[in-house]
């Protein structure tokens, strides 16, 4: 458990930002000043860590602001850090061509989050997948029926504490 925390901590030191990311890093605090956020970097991308309650408002703001104009969802991903689940959004601007990472932490017991499908329609299946594999439920999502797994599957196979069924060679 303790080792896993270290993996999370060590994300900050390497810094390989390009010009667009540096500009983005400089202007972001002004844009999201209304919210409680922390801005740091991960390798060559700017990372914004936000509170889970505010995720939808921040995403809407980032999409509609002309300076950021993040209109394209690259990837929605859940990472299981055992103490908490981290939902990671990689977003991209098709007009300004810059990328941003938005992160938010939810608790592993009954994790729930506001859905971002109203912001980017492309989040639909990603959220269903996250619900399948990690059990994160997204409020106000149109339908969270199983996508990759079959109906009535027990457990969340994406999580690290999921016990794989024993393999039988036939």
């Amino acid at each position: 458990m303790a080792e896993k925390d270290k993996a999370e901590e060590a994300i900050e030191p390497i810094n390989r930002l390009d010009a667009k990311s540096i500009a983005l890093q400089a202007m972001l605090p002004g844009i999201v000043s209304d919210f409680k956020v922390t801005i740091n970097t991960a390798f060559d991308l700017v990372v914004v860590a936000v509170e889970p309650e505010e995720i939808k408002q921040i995403c809407l703001l980032l999409r509609d602001n002309d300076e950021t104009a993040f209109d394209y969802l690259l990837l929605l991903c859940v990472v299981d850090y055992e103490d908490y689940l981290q939902v990671v959004y990689h977003i991209y601007s098709t007009s300004l061509k810059h990328t941003l990472v938005v992160k938010t932490n939810v608790s592993p017991e009954e994790p729930s989050l506001e859905s971002v499908t109203p912001v980017w329609k492309g989040a639909d299946w990603y959220e269903r997948e996250a619900h399948d594999l990690f059990g994160v439920s997204f409020n106000a999502h149109p339908s969270l029926s199983p996508l990759l797994l079959y109906e009535g599957f027990e457990g969340f196979p994406g999580r690290r504490n999921y016990e794989m069924p024993e393999y039988k060679e036939w």
Binding site: K6, A7, A10, I11, F43, D44, C77
Partner: peptide, 25 residues
């Protein structure tokens, strides 16, 4: 690889593929 996380994008025949990888060392 050193600890850290990385997101890499590439152009596949079908579209944009991305790999988000977290290494814990």
């Amino acid at each position: 690889p050193p600890k850290g996380e990385v997101y890499v994008r590439g152009e596949n025949p079908r579209g944009e593929i991305g790999v988000y990888m977290i290494s814990d060392g």
